Amino acid sequence: MRYLLAFLLALALPAMSAAQTGWPALYDVAGVASDDVLNVRAGPGAGFDKLGSLPHDAEGIEVIDVDDGVRWGRINLDERSGWVSLAYLRRLPGQGDRAFPAVARCYGTEPFWDLERDGDSVTFRLLVDVIAGPVAVQQTRSTGRLDRFGFAGTGIAATIARSACNDGMSDRQYGLSIEVLLRSGGDWTQYSGCCSLQR
């Protein structure tokens, strides 16, 4: 019995450690002179090509993931992703490993859809038509995984996971994936996509 318990704990460790990274999270640029910018690089290091820059006072920057040394963070810039030095970013409070991700928008393709969250309600649009919402939802969290969350309301339910995600249409990267179940009439339809903490 003791060996079985040790084996099960060993299997759970990779999932637990991945869930405890606490990304994605929102940051403000900090420590950059007012006449300077924070460079966005093609890779996690100053030797990589410059893709663009962030103003010295940029706020609410979503860091999707970090490099192995936790010195560089991956962000989205226009329709691609790049890397910025974490030494010049300050993490906003209330975003611990166990905190429910403050999802602002989620997206999917084929067909194009988006979900916007505003407080305790969500609105689901298919193409440009509002299909559901605003619908009041209640947040839930997995009893067995630290990296799984969800919400549910009348005619809609979703599971959100801290996992790498791509919209399939750009080079943008996301740190949250979502599975949405939406009831229209008597039928349920499932939509898969990615979520962002930014509007």
Rank of each mutant, 00 (worst) to 15 (best):
E116Y: 01
A102V: 12
P111S: 11
I131S: 14
V137L: 08
E79Q: 12
S17I: 11
A33V: 01
Q198W: 00
V135A: 04
R125M: 13
D129W: 03
P24G: 10
D57F: 10
Y88S: 14
A164G: 08
V29G: 07
T154L: 13
N39L: 15
R105V: 09
G153H: 02
D35W: 11
L4R: 11
V70I: 14
G193M: 13
L146G: 01
A25T: 05
V32H: 02
W72A: 06
R148C: 00
R117K: 09
V180A: 03
N39I: 09
L11D: 10
L197D: 07
V70C: 01
G186C: 09
R80Q: 13
S17A: 13
D118H: 12
Y3N: 12
L89T: 02
E59F: 00
S163M: 04
T140F: 00
F100R: 11
M1R: 09
G185C: 06
A33H: 03
P14Y: 09
G193A: 11
M16Q: 14
D97L: 04
S170Y: 13
W72P: 02
D68I: 12
D120I: 04
S170A: 12
S85E: 13
A164S: 13
S121M: 08
V84K: 09
Y3D: 15
M16H: 08
G43C: 10
D129G: 00
M169Y: 06
Q198K: 14
G96Q: 11
A18S: 12
D67F: 07
G73C: 09
M169N: 12
G69L: 15
Y88G: 01
F149E: 08
R41E: 08
G96D: 15
A58P: 00
G155P: 03
D57N: 15
G193N: 11
V66C: 05
R80V: 03
T143Y: 02
Y3P: 00
A132T: 02
I156S: 03
W23P: 00
P93V: 02
R41V: 02
G22Y: 10
L54P: 01
E110N: 14
G168Q: 05
F7K: 03
Q95H: 03
L9M: 15
D35E: 14
S81G: 04
L176F: 01
L54F: 12
V84P: 05
I61P: 00
S192I: 09
A158K: 10
I64F: 06
A104P: 00
D67I: 08
A19F: 01
Y3L: 14
Q198V: 15
E59N: 04
S163H: 01
D78T: 06
R98W: 10
D35Q: 11
Y191P: 02
T21A: 04
C194W: 08
L89F: 03
N166C: 00
W188M: 11
L13V: 15
C194P: 05
V63N: 04
G96L: 13
A58R: 14
A33R: 12
G119F: 09
D68G: 06
I61E: 10
C165F: 04
Q20D: 05
T21C: 00
Y27Q: 06
